[in-house]
Simulated scan of single mutants.
Amino acid sequence: MMEKKATRLAFGESLVELGKINENVVVLDADLTKSTMTTFFQKEFPNRHLNMGIAEANMMATAAGIASTGKIPFVSTFAIFAAGRAFEQIRNSIAYPKLNVKICPTHAGISVGEDGGSHQSIEDIALMRTIPGMVVLSPADATETRQMILEAAKYEGPMYIRLGRLNVPILFDESYEFKIGKAVELKEGNDVAIIATGLMVAEAIKASEILKEKGISARVINMSTIKPLDNDAVLKAANECKFIVTSEEHSVIGGLGSAVSDFLSSVRPTLVIKHGINDVFGQSADGDTMLDEYHLRANDIAKLVLDNYK
């Protein structure tokens, strides 16, 4: 059994680490500190943590003002409130003036679980991708989350880092190296390329093992930066593999699959099978049950490959 850890927990721990080495880091939360795990930073640096209450739009605008003074605000709430409720403030107050705000929502995707469809953000990647200049990241595990948070503080400009509630397998050790805008090939293969992001990376690795038993060589790519997309890695996969499957815990409309398809349509038309949530809302059940119910498992990825392999 692989050790598991939620990316939101890694986020909270990493903020404390970052706060110790960078005094310009400030954290804002919308009355969800125990859920987003910014409570760790709040306890360590009470004078650099602002609980803005249930006022997400105001929180984003406040973060913009703080960034204009040279500080580096990390802002957190649930993804449905960050990307949804505060979209206008992110667009106009943060991204339009190109301010250095790091938006780090937790509880993204249907693995939020029992909170139900109203709280399961399956549109946030699509929304953030459309904002000019916004960097969009989605870590595969706790190790990558830590590196993302540390790298985010070095990057100048607005950034959206998508985090989850559910405990997920720790895939990488400390030798793993995350770079903004760079995908990582985790498994070699030339029959099909599975390009995954977030918690679906672990499922993609499992799917490659299932396919190996069927005689199919599956390349697995961790696309933890969704914008800017690693076009070189995508084009290489399109040139060397028969087709591509994208996998994400997000709507198949506007997310990773759309980003890959948008790019390839103009440079090398390629069959892209988009695996994700098929234009439906979520329901209320525990996170693992939700992943089963919405067919976001390794067996489902493998089936998509087998159904389209010729």
Rank of each mutant, 00 (worst) to 15 (best):
K4V: 13
A6G: 13
L9N: 04
A10P: 09
V16Q: 01
E17A: 14
G19C: 04
K20A: 08
L32D: 11
T33N: 13
S35T: 13
A55S: 13
M60P: 09
A61C: 10
A63E: 09
T69W: 03
K71N: 10
P73I: 00
P73F: 06
V75N: 03
F78Q: 04
A82W: 05
R91D: 07
K98I: 12
L99T: 02
K102V: 10
I103P: 10
H107F: 05
E114S: 09
D115L: 13
S121R: 12
D124L: 02
P132Q: 05
P139I: 02
A140Y: 08
A152H: 00
K154V: 02
Y155K: 05
P158W: 01
Y160Q: 01
G164S: 12
V168S: 11
F172C: 06
E174P: 05
Y176G: 12
K182C: 15
V184N: 15
K187L: 08
E188K: 13
I194P: 07
I195C: 11
G198Q: 09
A202E: 06
V220Y: 01
I221Y: 03
P228A: 03
L229S: 00
N231A: 15
F243G: 03
I244Y: 05
S247P: 04
V252H: 03
S258D: 03
S265G: 03
V267Q: 10
G276I: 02
G276T: 07
Q283W: 05
A285S: 14
M290E: 11
Y294F: 15
L296A: 08
D300K: 04
I301K: 10
A302W: 01
K303C: 12
